[in-house]
Amino acid sequence: MIRFEDVTKVYDTTSRPALNGVTTEIERGEFVFLVGPSGSGKSTFIRLVQREEKASSGTVYVSGRDVSRLSSWRVPHLRRDLGVVFQDFRLLPNKNVFANVAFAMQVLGKRRGLINQAIPEVLETVGLQDKARRFPHELSGGEQQRVAIARAAVNKPAILLADEPTGNLDPDTSWGIMEVLDTIHQNGTTVVMATHDHEIVNTMRRRVIELDAGKIVRDEPEAGYEPADSTAQVQSRLRKSEVR
């Protein structure tokens, strides 16, 4: 479904690569956690799959297509196979829940009849069937993220990419989101979720790809994640800068 072959991504030639010689493969129907500290290359990984970025070297295959050789007018076709969810929800504030989800279908030219049929279904999947007429500012963060997931899933993409979907949410709400992602996964969608929430990773016991400084340092099925103590790291960095 997604295959990286010796992929390197350099944003800025003076600093180290965001991804450095990454080779991995994610099969159809898998649920994969992409873990690692900030700056380890998780977001770059997702952006390469979306072809928001092009690999500096190496090849990225998505659904059998070499995305770097996709012509710019074919890129939208690739993205129709992908649903994407972000930490900051990215909803349209002037549209209600129904209209936010409908927007994703309208811009693909879907028929009104299909839209009116698909949206109640997907809102039920994410548990928002009663809130279709609410506006984003009337919803909690967790509910907003459910709307974003509904929007990502409504066109039935083969792959769902989630970049820190629980990053802005408290632990209880995060679990609700995970349940929704799990439901979508069980309906046959491949899910790739970038996160550094170790509690979630440890409880779900899925395949874990751990990145550090742009390299895959671990790739285990049904694994957990113990991040280095980030507080200790920050403190040691602060101390070093004081010494200087």
Partner: peptide, 8 residues
């Protein structure tokens, strides 16, 4: 969002 969902 249009880019995201693959609008032409």
């Amino acid at each position: 969002i249009m880019r995201l969902v693959g609008a032409s």
